[in-house]
Design a protein around this nucleic acid. Sequence first.
DNA 1: AACATTTGTTTTATATACAAAACTTAAGGA
DNA 2: TCCTTAAGTTTTGTATATAAAACAAATGTT
Lengths: 263, 263
Amino acid sequence: MSESLNKNHDRYFVPGLARGLRVLEVIAQADQPLTIAEIGKKLGISRSSAFRITYTLSYLGYLSSDKGDKLYELGPRVLDLGFSYLNRQDIIKLAKPYLEKLRDQTDVSSHLAIRDGKEVLYLDNIISRSSFVSNITTGDRRPIYATPLGWILLGDLSETSIRKLFEGDQFKILTPHTPKNIDELINRVRAAREQGYVISRGFVQRGGSTITAPVLNEIGKVVAVIDISAPDSAFSFDKMDSFYVPAVVDTAREISKNLGHRG
Amino acid sequence: MSESLNKNHDRYFVPGLARGLRVLEVIAQADQPLTIAEIGKKLGISRSSAFRITYTLSYLGYLSSDKGDKLYELGPRVLDLGFSYLNRQDIIKLAKPYLEKLRDQTDVSSHLAIRDGKEVLYLDNIISRSSFVSNITTGDRRPIYATPLGWILLGDLSETSIRKLFEGDQFKILTPHTPKNIDELINRVRAAREQGYVISRGFVQRGGSTITAPVLNEIGKVVAVIDISAPDSAFSFDKMDSFYVPAVVDTAREISKNLGHRG
DNA sequence: AACATTTGTTTTATATACAAAACTTAAGGA
DNA sequence: TCCTTAAGTTTTGTATATAAAACAAATGTT
């Protein structure tokens, strides 16, 4: 019911702050506005504390309580932090024209993503003009072990770093191609690094295909990853190696080159 | 140097939470990563408190400290709240196809916005295909008194509500068309409400034009506003009344109609 | 309609978050 | 090299944030 609330996890923890952010997260994840009592239950804190936190968050615009002041949902203020973060990621602005060109060449959607811990975080989403509705939007996260994007991103870490990162984790098997354990994951990562790109057919989603390649900075560190991805029907599979792969790899290389110049 | 930190503004305030969010805001607004000492100075809190807050925020992923652990910037976690908010705004999904159609008809950029207090908040931004680089992106805010979008949005408030909202405020005059005081603003709002739309030529920005119309819910409340906007050169001014205005007004009406059906 | 439950709000005694001060590094200038 | 200043970290006494308990209002049930 309630994950342990990291009480004095370290002696420098500010509990009021941690709890307030947990409240925002819980409300963000809930699929409907929550009452004070529900928030308290979900976090395992007293109603009075939940009351004080929602009071503070509402005052600051991070929560808004519409229907008769009883139900709390996210307030518009939360947008500011997110977009401020996005606007700071120079790689988005830098990569966008290249990704658009790639989309136009291939007529499938292209994406830009980075690693955040054990997750892939999508930073941009250039949708196909023939517009199959994409199931990915900016800000989405996916488990890093389960996607080709992730295998490329992990290529930057040593084997021991990867083992430490996933220590004790159970991999949820999403498709027949999902690595079943750390060893299989490490093989995937190594293969991806050696090849310099990943082609996947139905790895992440049945009937969907992806081609993925890394964006490197001046010292060869993997700072981001790009892909093109679409239902199989959108690809001409006979042109996979001759056309799609070079298109993605070259685009990644161009972005990498310009990254070196500026950043 | 430091805005007064709302000490026990009310007895239910959670100061640790309020300060933590202020830290995030200050870092979001700064144009470079900040040190603990700088954060403390900006907020008027002690270094030790700034240390504990950044410690907590970093642990939770809301801050990241790259360069040698001394400089703090926003962490990727801040994205989750923002996008969760956006995904919850059904009006965005609902309005998008209509705005795209409007963009295609007129070949200028179109936008969707709502009111947040004294600000206009942009929720979507459909850029022109002939793509003059738009100076507006999702998440942007503008002072509500200074823009036609704002005059429409304020149409939902009574005159006394408007006076209360801006009580004691000084209006910064951005263009010759900016209302100089509350009375002028109220005239603009009234005119906008009576006309049902606003045409502006260079009101907000020199050489730029906008046409704006309200989105209403089933009981006639203004819940959002749409516009098309571009440099003057993108418009054919002889078709202003015959083509552009009806296009925007009709689109707003269609969105309003569908809003009633679903929400 | 009466009772029982649940939820939001207020009070309050006490556990603890906070700022000041002490300590530790690091950087810069003389 | 030594001295000074500034910044990050740790400790600590005290002001205060907090959870429990009390209260009030609303909602649900028999």
